[in-house]
Each structure stands twice: as C-alpha cells, then as structure tokens.
Design a protein around this nucleic acid. Structure first.
Length: 313
DNA sequence: TCCCAGGGAGGAT
DNA sequence: ATCCTCCATGGG
C-alpha cells in the first residue's frame, strides 16, 4: 500500500516578488472578486482547481513587509506537480509582479493624501479573482450590501450549490458554483438559501445568459475597457460600480476604479473640495488621474476612507 | 424602531 | 443629466 504524501510545502522567496507585500492586508481588505479569505492562526486557506486537479493550499507570510518569504502548504493528489501550477496561480492572484514601488514613487509627491496610505498599507496588493464567473457574481452581491453579508452569501452559495472535491487527507471542500448550476435554479430558492435578497433574480438571469452561450466572459475579457463596460451595463443587476468591480477584481483592467459610497465621499473631499459630482464623473476622474494605477488608487483610498470613517459631505 | 451596507432600475423633474 | 423611491436581508 502506497503511502499517502501528507505535508508538502514550498516557499516563494522575497526575490520573486516585485516590491513589498502584506499578505494579511491583501487577503483581508475585502476585495470583491471572491469571498474574503478566512484566517486560521496566521495562515490563510483556499481551494482551487488548477489544470483540472483540485488543490488545497495554505499561505503564510514569514517576516515583515519588506523582507519576507511566503510559505505555501499544498494538499493534492500529486503535490509536486500541483506546486508548479500553484506558483503561477499565486503570482497572478496576489499581483506579485505589480511594481508597487513604482506606484508609490509615481504618486507620493503629487498626492499627499494617497501617500499617507502608502505607509499604513505598504505591501497591499490587488487580488485578481481566479475565476471570471465567481468575480462577476461576487461583484453583483456587493450592491447595497455589507462586506460581511456579501461574504456570507458567497459562502452559502458554495455550500449549497458548489461542486464538492475531496483530498488525500480525507477532507472535503466545496467550490464556488458553476454558471450552469445557478442557471437551473429558480431565483426564489437561491434567495432563501443564500440570503441574497433581491440580488437573486438578476444573478440567476445572468447565469442563464452565460450557460446558454448568450454571454461569454472570456470574450468580454478580451475587449477594451470602454467596450466591456458597455456590454456589462446591459446585464440586469449590473451598473457602473459592479461593472468596474468585475473588471478590476476579475483581473481584466487595472484602470477600472469602482466608485462606491466610500470612494465617492473620499474623492469629493480630497480632490473636489467637497463639491458635488456624480459617481460616474468620480470614476472617470480616477481613471484619468491614475491611468493604469486607478484600480490600485481606489484600493488604497477605500481602506483609507473606511478606516477614517469619512463623513458624508 | 430606525438606519445602514463597496447600488441598480425605473420613473419624474 | 440629475433626483427620487423602492428593492431583501441582517447587523448595529
């Protein structure tokens, strides 16, 4: 009887990350492309299907924001093989190639408010959701919702409607549901089982468009920012903020800057002297000022605004 | 009990 | 274009 390989682990060295990293801030900053990661005594666990095979892994950052290594524990049928895919997956998902120092240097001088966040949030990176459908649904869940409830609904969707995968150690985990699965539900069932409220109907509707081939998120991801937004806005339950959320956290366009209530408040205060402008203009302002770093600027300002609890103007 | 949450749709002005 | 109101649900 062959022995089951138990603990396999590897490390990502500091040298293969472009600049500082705060794994904790990155995974717990409430980025909407996927359910927020759960921290279990300093370690974060996730389950993904990479190249067709289920992989469970735990991440831990050893060291500080500037001098560190990422410890990765892998559970899979063939851990060594999975590790190869996992390295690419993590690099993309955690934005390890993003040149953070370039971002900081570019705006530290001309933008004092933003520069303030560079100190507190040093190493915070943009997370790209590994799955486009998951990113879209989580973005739709975010409308008029709290981060806490959004995550709760996403987890309930996984538990009730996600495929279950099992691992050599005997554990079973549930994945985020497929579009085809949600497409077969009636919205009432989804609403009652996952506490999604009035968001259930458009979520089922959009899932059906994807399942029957009317909408291809893969093709959408190849489009320009403007054209992609145009397509997204035609979907029920998708407005400007949700569209930008999907494009940013789906890892499609870093120029997308989702403008929610908090971002709107902080941008009006910092850049418009409290003058009232529409959310659409706020979003355009961020894109024009920060270009391909607009998503990052939004990410840092979001945390800054929430932490400071900027009052409505 | 009331207000709010990483908004969107539909309508009226 | 901008400004209402309503929309389910759970937490404070």
């Amino acid at each position: 009887m062959a022995t089951i390989p138990q603990g396999f682990s590897f490390e990502i060295p500091c040298a293969s990350v472009n600049g500082p990293l705060s794994l904790r801030d990155t995974l717990l900053s409430g980025q909407t492309g996927q359910p927020e990661w759960l921290a279990v005594d300093g370690s974060f666990t996730d389950v993904r299907v990479l190249d067709g095979t289920p992989v469970k892994y735990a991440l831990q950052q050893v060291g500080d924001r500037d001098n560190f290594r990422i410890r990765v524990q892998v559970t899979a049928i063939n851990p060594e093989e999975a590790a190869t895919n996992l390295k690419d997956h993590l690099s993309r998902m955690l934005g390890l190639k993003d040149d953070l120092n370039c971002f900081y240097q570019k705006f530290a001088n001309e933008d004092p408010a933003l520069a303030h966040t560079f100190i507190n949030l040093r190493g915070l990176r943009l997370m790209r959701g590994p799955d486009l459908f998951e990113a879209l649904i989580c973005s739709m869940l975010s409308q008029n919702n709290s981060v806490r409830l959004l995550n709760r609904s996403a987890r309930l969707m996984m538990q009730h409607f996600g495929r279950i995968v099992s691992f050599p150690d005997g554990s079973k985990e549930s994945l985020f549901p497929q579009a085809e699965t949600l497409a077969r539900l009636n919205s009432r069932e989804l609403r009652l089982k996952t506490s999604t409220g009035y968001r259930a109907k458009p979520i089922v509707n959009v899932s059906r468009k994807i399942a029957n081939g009317e909408l291809s998120l893969g093709k959408l991801a190849e489009d320009s920012y403007d054209h992609a937004v145009e397509t997204l806005l035609e979907l029920p339950g998708v407005g400007p903020k949700v569209a930008d959320c999907f494009l940013l956290y789906g890892g499609i366009h870093t120029e997308a800057a989702p403008v929610d209530l908090w971002i709107h408040r902080i941008v009006l205060k910092l850049y418009f002297r409290g003058k009232k402008v529409s959310r659409l203009k706020t979003a355009r302002f961020l894109r024009e000022r920060f270009l391909n770093w607009a998503g990052y600027a939004q990410l840092y300002l979001f945390d800054y605004a929430r932490r400071g609890k900027v009052a409505p103007t």
